[in-house]
Structures are given as structure tokens and as C-alpha cells.
Design a binder for these strands. Structure first.
Length: 104
DNA sequence: CCACTGACTCGCG
DNA sequence: TCGCGAGCCAGTG
């Protein structure tokens, strides 16, 4: 099963996202030296234990969308955590990546 | 080894 | 605006 160290490069990039900013799965993959492997980032975050220090909630889908989970519960939590950091959502539930994107 | 499944993206119609 | 198909690739059975 999961050896978290396999995803260490991904977690390193996620940990570098500043508070109040967000990145996308694709961007994280690219910065981790894994271009085109956005799905791998999603998998890596999915295996992340709650205790892990990496701010998983600062990773969103392309276009600033919150990617729906299987159960959906943590998606709501993600929005709350981001709002706590000052990230605003549009009426459609989207994040303005020009404003809140990492290096946007 | 094969088929299926995704916390993904992009392009088309 | 929305859905669909195609790439994508690592786990799982």
C-alpha cells in the first residue's frame, strides 16, 4: 500500500504554497518535475494522512474549481479552510486564479 | 498481463 | 455553458 515517500516531491511543492494562495493539480505536478501527471497529484493528496503538515487544501482543480471527492465531505472543509485564509469564492464556487493563484 | 478506476486537463461540438 | 472523448498513469483485483 502507500509508501508516502514515493510522493515526497509532490508534498514538497504543496508545502511551499503560501497561505492565502492556491495552486492546481497540474501546476503542482509540473513544479514537482512530473509534467502531465495531475492525476498523480490527486492520488498523492488522497493518501495524505490528516496529520501530515502539507496544506492539501491549497490545491484545487483547473480554473480554480474545487474537485469533488468521493464522499464530498472534505471538499466543504477545503472551502472553509481557504476562506479562513482570506481566499474568496465567486458565486459559482470558483477561485480567481489570477488573484489567488500561486505566482498568478 | 488485462481491465477498471480516479482529489486531472484540454479540446471539440 | 455543458458534456464527452482522449490523453494521462499508478493502484487494485
Amino acid at each position: 500500500m502507500g509508501d508516502l515517500r514515493r510522493y515526497e516531491r509532490i508534498y514538497l511543492v504543496v508545502a511551499a504554497i503560501p497561505p492565502g494562495r492556491v495552486s492546481t493539480y497540474g501546476q503542482v505536478a509540473e513544479l514537482a518535475g512530473l509534467p502531465g501527471r495531475a492525476r498523480l497529484v490527486g492520488r498523492a493528496l488522497g493518501e495524505l494522512p490528516d496529520r501530515h503538515p502539507a496544506p492539501w487544501y491549497r490545491v484545487v482543480g483547473a480554473g480554480g474549481r474545487i474537485s469533488p471527492r468521493g464522499d464530498g465531505s472534505s471538499a466543504d472543509e477545503q472551502r472553509l479552510l481557504l476562506e479562513d485564509e482570506g481566499v474568496e469564492f465567486s458565486a459559482g464556487g470558483l477561485i480567481d486564479l489570477v488573484r489567488y493563484g500561486w505566482d498568478g
